[in-house]
Design a protein around this nucleic acid. Structure first.
Length: 491
RNA sequence: GUCCUCAUCGUCUAGUCAGGUCCAGGACACCGGCCUUUCACGCCGGCAACACCGGUUCAAAUCCGGUUGGGGACGCCA
């Protein structure tokens, strides 16, 4: 069997969004699974909308996700000679013709058709122009586009789709489409096919929004004398109102960089994305890279589109709850050393990183992460909710402050007193520290919870957290004593 | 308007090709309980779906037809 060759061809007109990322992921998975190659091709033929910034954004997004490619990035505009040669060939073969209809006229016709609820396609005005007429118009300097001449055949054309099965369409339904602009620049439908032929692409995995393009491109392959690749049209991701997600209407929430900035673990996000339109056929949902590569097949991609279930302005779930759940799963189960690396980046960004965490304090660092990761949702939480473990300038949240501290003014005396007892201990052990706390509660005739919860608030700033014993050892005697002694400042 | 296409819990989905093992399984979310003098994790339990109508068949989520609903495309964008 010859090598499988896949491609991911983003147009650099904006950031990488989750739909594109998922398409890239599926291509990547299939390439890896079949031992093939993934080609990255930047389709920048739309000069007006393509930007350098966007190219970098897409590359960064893919790198963050860990989707690597074997060839490229190629830039489509570098191959315009190939595209124009193909257009020339089609023109010479009679598979294409020059069309002198102006954009204004076509737009007007389209608008009229839309208003009259008529068919929208090109009416073929220039299709039957005689050679002499063409020559005359050319000599008169009238600009023209090159249109593909859809064969006049009975019956249907189509292709076998790996996801959807046989797709067919009547020849009469396909309008003559433009392959070269009037400014001489080739268009997507043509460029895409020419590049795929040159790059020897064997499998095209792309969104279902390309289905009508594929129908037309099938004709291009035939006219260019090239074999058809395997097509797999994957379902689209829609928003909760079942509209196609787009950068324009949804903004940041559908951007890959949003998830990087919100502390997602890259592979966890891939794992979520993969499940949006694919399943292994059993109840398995969590996969390592290797496991997913092995499990992935085109046949198991879903036919129907899925909904990206983010709820705008939801305080608890800032994106699809399942995405967060999967991220949490990885956060709790990944090897602590790996988490350590990811959190290191967060701490560095927040200015909380201490080089000793990689050296003599490494054990403490990893143990602390392991202690606090249980109730976190994203990598960001280590630097925010977990700030008290790494710095002194942590904020005491208002809710626990009210509930656990201010409600008991006596704590102003009790907690510093407890701090003194801690300071006097020969050896600071968790068990003994807890015993002393309970002893104090008994002396003052209050429930231990008053002391313990007050202490948690003062020491960590949080309403919730690991058991107090563990917190004490993680933060360490010196810092605990210091913080308890300053309880009065909170009143 | 035309063409293409899809249809199982709120969401992601298993089951559909090879009809019976499915009064439909898992996950997320939600609700309740256990654990925990915090909160979570974990564990246990609960809620919740075969779009509709016909046909084929001893038997239909599964096959066929239609209806309805959803999505996509119809650019000198990609």
């Amino acid at each position: 069997m010859t090598e499988t060759r896949l491609r991911f061809p983003p147009s650099p007109t904006g950031y990488l969004h989750i739909g594109g990322a998922r398409t890239a992921l599926y291509n990547w998975l299939f390439a890896k699974k079949t031992g093939g190659k993934l080609i990255l091709r930047i389709e920048d033929t739309d000069a007006e909308r393509s930007t350098e910034e966007s190219i970098n954004g897409i590359l960064d997004g893919l790198k963050w996700l860990g989707i690597d490619w074997d060839e490229g990035p190629y830039f489509q505009t570098r191959f315009s000679d190939d595209h124009l040669a193909a257009a020339r060939k089609l023109l010479d073969q009679g598979n294409a013709y020059k069309c002198f209809c102006t954009k204004e006229v076509l737009d007007a016709k389209r608008e009229a058709a839309l208003a009259a609820k008529q068919n929208l396609g090109y009416d073929g005005t220039c299709r039957h122009l005689k050679p002499a007429e063409v020559r005359a118009k050319e000599e008169a300097g009238i600009p023209f586009v090159v249109r593909f001449r859809v064969p006049e055949r009975q019956g249907t054309l189509g292709y076998d789709d790996k996801v959807l099965g046989r797709i067919e369409c009547d020849y009469r339904e396909v309008d003559d489409f433009v392959i070269v602009r009037s400014n001489g620049k080739p268009l997507y439908l043509l460029c895409n096919v020419v590049d795929d032929i040159r790059d020897k692409i064997s499998h095209i995995i792309r969104g279902q929004d390309h289905m009508t393009n594929t129908t037309r491109q099938v004709l291009l392959y035939e006219a260019l004398g090239a074999p058809l690749p395997v097509f797999a049209h994957i379902p689209l991701t829609l928003d909760t109102k079942k509209a196609k997600i787009s950068k324009r209407s949804h903004g940041e929430i559908v951007a890959v960089h949003f998830y990087r900035e919100h502390g997602f673990i890259p592979w966890a996000f891939n794992n979520f994305l993969a499940l949006l339109g694919w399943s292994p056929g059993n109840d398995r949902e969590i996969f390592t890279r290797q496991e997913m590569i092995e499990a992935f097949t085109l046949e198991r991609i879903n036919k129907s589109s899925s909904i990206f279930n983010f709820r705008k302005d939801d305080p608890k779930f800032f994106t699809d709850p399942k995405a967060i759940a999967i991220n949490e799963h990885y956060l709790r189960t990944m090897a602590i050393e790996e988490i350590g690396e990811l959190v290191r980046q967060e701490l560095e960004e927040a200015g909380l990183w201490n080089q000793e965490y990689a050296g003599e304090k490494r054990q403490w660092y990893l143990k602390t992460l392991d202690l606090i990761r249980e109730r976190f949702h994203t990598l960001k939480d280590f630097a925010t909710l977990g700030r008290a473990y790494f710095a002194e300038d942590f904020r005491i949240e208002d809710k626990p402050l009210q509930k656990n501290v201010l409600k008991f003014p006596e704590l102003q005396d009790w907690l510093p007193a407890l701090a003194d007892r801690y300071a006097r201990m020969d050896e600071f052990s968790a068990e003994e520290a807890e015993r002393l706390a309970r002893e104090l509660a008994e002396e003052k005739d209050v429930k231990p919870g008053v002391i313990i919860n007050g202490m948690r608030t003062v020491v960590t700033g949080q309403l919730a957290g690991p058991s107090m014993i563990e917190v004490l050892t993680a933060i360490g005697r010196d810092r605990v004593v210091q913080r308890l002694r300053r309880t009065g400042e909170l009143f």
